[in-house]
Design a protein around this nucleic acid. Structure first.
Length: 658
RNA sequence: GCUGGCGUGGCUCAGGUGGUAGAGCGGGUGACUCGUAAUCACCAGGUCGGGGGUUCAAGUCCCCCCGCCAGCACCA
């Protein structure tokens, strides 16, 4: 006897094994027809999976988001079958093909490489499978049979090995000539996968390990309705227009030069204004929150980085500078000669700082610290350089030289939680000021770590408590902490939904130890302070990159490089336009006068393209009445108003950071 | 770093099967004196990412390097 509990608490009983289809049929005929699968005791199953034990069930229809996962997973199988057909059943070795948040993919190992031009052909073959309405059929098999079936599929065999002994092995058929090792679930038949599209191809390491072979991954997405697919594709197109690399060029914000080096950012005047505004705000905020501003050098002796441990753990990512005693005579007129081995050996090595912590620590150590002094909070706009792998560079979001709003807190263990909360509050102030979407993750103790378990527990608890008390949602990512301590990372999303770490709070047991940091406690004993690394924005470059995408280039007025442009209707009104310009300039508004010849429409177009918040049109009428006609980038034409009225409006907007 | 794709004037992009480069925007000059996303005309800009090779001849074919894009890996 099997008892099935429905979400409303009611129960259905069955004599023997049943299925989602049967259960749905008991509830309503329409549900039987619409059921895509179900969540049974938390596990996603399809409508034909035999249910042999009692449990709680929630039937899934197209309305439930889980149904998309089932649909996309099925689309992945259709893709695999199509690729096998086109490229040869024997030649194509299958990797894995799961559904993802936005779609699905399948990894293939095959002798020829698939390019994007091949995608339409594959789609066509998929269409054929869809039209044929082939059924997905689940089959439970023994391990021995599985090994036999997949004897020519090395990747599947490997997967088979990793299925726990007590788990049932299942394969899914799609039609009569294709099967795949898979735990499901799937839709009933391929005809249900009507709205799909293949999007891209890229390499992906087998099992996500760079020591393994790289397979070819085909990405695609699928929806229940063609309309939803189209909407998704348009959304993707729109998102691409928000790309900070595109907008950075259009709005003349920053650039990166091949001849200067990849990942090294040049801030143009417009971008520099945005950066300065943010820096000034962040700096004041730090002062308000009890941080002391410091400055530290860009290069420091390599030996210092040996003490800190960076040399051992991070040198792959560091830039080094050899200081060589040149033999001037020999090198005269011959600067091109590279360093000789002897010179390199004799050189004194400096390292360009990849982080600011050692510098801050030296300042902490510059005097004896009392427990009364703690917490000590140092802050610096620290410009660091890291040799990031070439393939990971990405506009402003991943660079080789960047500036952190970096701070280090030195405190007593009993102050840790409060300090973390202080940082969290600050981070929230930032995120709400810019209205950014984010995800919070706690990284816990990794496999390789230093420090006592006790200290780890204390610190991890402090992080979790701090988050709980502030009522934040967070994920715990086991083992994602730094080797020196647990951390909270806050990821901000870019235009197309990729996550980038921004704000971070990291507890550190390592550096206080390595640098032998102490404070004198109440009892006169020397004790070890706890150190917290924290950045509010993270990297300013990344932060602004994300802001550009977030605002789609239309910055709030306080950040806009040009806040107002005055547009005279013709040269005749230049004098009056000048007067208006001067009034605004006087009020410290970033204003420009468009005194070039040309029609009003053209000048407005230029201002619109540069996404300038306000355009003030002045001509005969305005001159007569001492007003300006205001056109807002956001709200359109606002009509004429007194200059002072406009000034109040915009000054308030700037003050409120709207 | 890896797989695949791409790299033409400041920007965006055209340049079948190899025969020494085109457009629009932008820039400069002149005319127009103009009311809410592009006034007209003329002019100046490139040797085609860099290097090597094949060829009578390469932007166009081959090789190496650099850079960019997507994804993967990395991101204490």
């Amino acid at each position: 006897m099997i008892e099935i509990e429905l979400p409303d608490g009611s129960k259905l009983t069955f004599e023997k094994e049943t299925s989602v289809k049967e259960i749905a049929g008991r509830i309503a005929k329409s549900l039987e027809k619409n059921a895509i699968g179900a969540l049974f005791d938390g596990e996603l199953i399809d409508i034909h999976t035999p249910i042999t034990k009692s449990g709680k069930i929630r039937i899934i229809t197209q309305k439930d988001s889980e149904s998309l996962e089932i649909l996309r997973h099925s689309a992945a199988h259709i893709l695999a079958k199509a690729v096998k057909r086109l490229y040869g059943r024997e030649k194509v070795k299958l990797g894995i093909g799961p559904a993802t948040e936005e779609g699905f993919y399948y990894d293939f190992d095959l002798p020829v490489s698939i390019s994007e031009e091949d995608l339409p052909e594959i789609e066509k073959e998929m269409e054929n499978i869809v039209k044929a309405k082939e059924f997905f059929r689940r089959e439970e098999i023994t391990r021995e049979k599985a090994k036999e079936l997949f004897k020519d599929d090395p990747y599947k065999l490997e997967l088979l090995e990793s299925i726990p002994e007590d788990e049932t092995v299942t394969i899914y058929w799609l039609g009569e000539d294709f099967f795949d090792l898979c735990r499901g679930p799937h839709v009933e038949h391929s005809g249900m996968v009507k709205a799909f599209k293949l999007l891209s191809v890229a390499g992906a390491y087998w099992r996500g390990d760079s020591r393994n072979k790289m397979l070819q991954r085909v990405y695609g997405t699928a929806f229940w309705k063609k309309k939803e697919l189209d909407e998704y594709l348009t959304r993707l197109e729109e998102a691409k227009k928000r790309d900070h690399r595109v907008l950075g060029k259009q709005l003349d914000l920053f650039s990166i030069y091949e001849e200067a080096g990849p990942g090294l950012v040049f801030w143009h005047p417009n971008g520099a204004i945005i950066r300065r505004e943010i820096e000034e705000w962040v700096e004041k905020e730090h002062e308000r929150r009890g941080y002391q501003r410091i400055y530290t050098p860009h290069i420091m002796k390599a030996d210092l980085w040996k003490i800190s441990g960076h040399y051992d753990f991070y040198k792959e990512n560091m830039f080094f500078v050899p200081v060589v005693e040149h033999d001037e005579e020999e090198r005269l007129g011959n600067e091109e000669v590279p360093l000789t081995c002897e010179e390199i050996e004799k050189a004194h090595w400096y390292a360009v700082k990849p982080m600011n912590c050692p510098g801050h620590i030296l300042i902490y150590k510059s005097q004896v610290r009392s427990y009364r002094d703690l917490p000590i909070r140092f802050f610096e706009f620290g410009t660091v350089h890291r040799y990031e792998k070439s393939g990971s560079l990405h506009g402003l979001l991943r660079v080789r030289g960047f500036t952190q709003d970096d701070g280090h807190i030195f405190c007593r263990p009993d102050q840790l939680k409060e300090e973390i909360q202080g940082v969290l509050d600050y981070v929230m102030e930032l995120l709400t000021t810019f209205k950014l979407d984010y995800v919070m993750n706690i990284g816990t103790k990794p496999e390789k770590y230093i420090g006592t378990d006790e200290a780890w527990d204390h610190a991890t608890e402090a992080l979790i408590d701090a988050l709980k008390e502030r009522g934040f949602e967070y994920n715990i990512v086991e083992g994602d902490g730094a080797f020196y301590g647990p951390k909270i990372d806050i990821a901000v999303l870019d235009a197309i939904g990729r996550k980038w770490d921004g704000p971070t709070i990291q507890v550190d047991f390592n550096l206080p130890e390595r640098f032998d940091l102490t404070y004198v406690d109440k009892d006169g004993q020397k004790k070890r302070p706890v150190m917290v690394h924290r950045a509010i924005m993270g990297s300013i470059e990344r932060f602004i990159g994300l802001l550009i995408e977030h605002y789609a280039g239309l910055f709030p007025t306080w950040l806009a490089p040009t806040q107002v442009v005055v547009i005279p209707v013709s040269d005749r009104y230049l004098d009056y336009a000048d007067e208006v310009y001067a009034r605004l300039k006087e009020a410290k508004i970033r204003v420009r006068l468009d005194d070039e010849s040309g029609k009003v429409g053209y000048k407005i177009r230029k201002a619109e393209l540069m996404k300038i918040p306000y355009m003030l049109i002045v001509g005969e009428k305005e001159q007569q009445s001492g007003t300006v006609s205001v056109r807002s980038k956001r709200e359109g034409n606002l009509g004429a108003m007194e200059i002072s009225v406009f000034l109040d409006k915009i000054l308030n907007e700037i003050k409120e950071k709207l």
